[in-house]
Write a protein that binds this DNA or RNA. Sequence first.
RNA 1: GGGGUCGUAGCUCAGUCGGUUAGAGUGCCAGCCUGUCACGCUGGAAGUCGCGGGUUCGAGUCCCGUCGGCCCCGCCA
Length: 651
Amino acid sequence: MQRSHRNGELTRIHVGETVHLLGWARRVRNLGSLIFIDLRDRWGLIQLTADTTVVSPGLLNTLKTIRSEFVLSVKGTVELRNSPNEGIATGEIEVRILDLNILNTSLTPPIPIEDIDEPAGEELRLKYRYLDLRKNSLQKNLWLRSEMSHVIRDHFRQNDFFEVETPILTKSTPEGARDYLVPSRVHSGEFFALPQSPQLFKQLLQVSGFERYFQICRCFRDEDLRADRQPEFTQVDVEMSFITQEDIQDLISNLMVRLSSMVGRTINKPIPRLTYQDAMEFYGSDKPDLRFDNRIKDVSAFFNRSEFKIFRNAADSDGQRRVRALGFSGPIAGNLSRKQIDDLERDAKHLGAGGLPYIKWGKDGLSSSFKKFISEEETRKICTALGIIDEGIILFAVGPDSLTSKVLGELRNICGKQFGLIDSSVFSFVWITDFPLFEWNDDSLRWMAVHHPFTSPHPDDLYMIEDRPGECRALAYDLVLNGFEIGGGSIRIHSTELQSRIFKLLGISEAEAQDKFGFLLEALGYGAPPMGGIALGLDRMVMLFSGESSIREVIAFPKTAQARCLMTSAPSFVDLRQLTDLGLLKENKQTFRVGAVFFESQASSPALRRALGQRIQEITSTQTQGLISFDSKGRLIDSKTIQDGPFFEFE
RNA sequence: GGGGUCGUAGCUCAGUCGGUUAGAGUGCCAGCCUGUCACGCUGGAAGUCGCGGGUUCGAGUCCCGUCGGCCCCGCCA
């Protein structure tokens, strides 16, 4: 069974040739004495045609039975079309069918297998993922992903990197995300954890002298999901010895230039750097979208004599609380409706603000939520300070920086989209540097590592680790693209003493450190080189590079927001035997889910009855009870009483 | 853990104030059709209104609960 050509690669130079093609019938257009079939394979679409008045009766019969998504093998002659279609790549030509075999039939697909304006709901698309993946858009996305992976491998190989696989079954570590656990059968009661990242292994590979390591690896985090977060995701993991953060940033910047060119984007080097502090001050975010430059400004000083008490108090608070503002010029911003402003205020309140004070200058002149506290002259001064020349709006937030940054940073993103400030064809990369090393956690009442506990402090800040941990900077950096964090890394600690100091500050006891990371601490004592690295989020990169807004569109078999696979129905209950094998059920107390499945049918033959029995086993688990009904042809009529059986416990 | 939103034919959706036999487009099936390419025309079949309970003479519509999809907050070193 061989094809002579790929469908999408046929052109007018093949006219006159007899070709053998394979693929799926995307659509059949039967005009009576003329039949057209669009045949799809991985490389494209070609129109098959047959004149039913001249083909053999056998072929005519076959042609009549073809439906969408049937799998076909075709022999035919390439011809120029009478009426070309400029809309498709192979629109100049068509293949006149000489012979055709149906290799397989297809049920009517439950979802449209085409990129159309109103695609099926995501629930169905995920259930029938193998059909959804036939669509051109998903094939294109996964192809881009495949190509990007190759370019990434090539880039690191060219730079003398060593690809090493690290364990998937590994050790649970404190700090960080919740682990996915895997019970050990051999060691009853003990667990492996799936890696949140190969962090410790890549550091140990540096101790081993590999010097340049990379891996494209799967990572797992048992946390709640978002459009850009899946429980398992793919990292481009990198670690190097004897380097500075600039070395790593340069290496990755070069990679980004190469990858961007794959989707027709040119980016300027060097990629700009912004300190964490400046990012928070000017953009209210550690992953600012720099496709537009509207900046947050501290306007506290304008209000140190103001009648507006909330602002005045903040201005007088010596920096504890500040009045910060974000301005947008232009008629769209200046002429927002009451409702649009209410919507923004609702967003602001949602983020923790008390309200959304604003000044707006539009067609109808000035309006402001605190007009009576501010003169027109003062208003003009503030407008000028924020660069609002003609029409525009200024949004205010007051309070501690943590609050005002969050509110204005988020409003900046919302307004940037709403006011059309974002050129979606632009790639705007930025390195965010000098992250804080620690942050105070109110729940556990202790300092936590912002990046991870192996991150090196900034050498200038070493002296204040114990006294002023909150001010201590880390040699840590994130790579941000269009408002998404696509990577993060750091220079690591390579001395046992410093690592112990950090653990101590984090409240990790000597004993716990030994228990959890003893192997690392020990390794650092055997000539660990200075080292650092980065991990890039491949899923997010492919998402952004393909213009998608969810990483599910660039993952072959993604999970839902509730971390389920709708296609396989994972996770699922398992046999009790498996649980007892794993030591997850105590021997002296066993839990059984008791059930029995009855079924009724008028099945005509013993063979059909046996098949139905099998079918029931497929659609129920051993823990199920209820009644299933089939009709005489074995079609399912009713299974609504099927449910999970009750638990019984025996001592 | 919390907030928002959606769930009606295979699919995408409409369904008014709670009131007759729940509609449209598309897909599917059948017939007709020689240049279609989202073919066209004619006809037809197709519904557990997510599930459970409640209010009511009467529920797709109102109330409570529950399940599921999506988005967000918390969370994600």
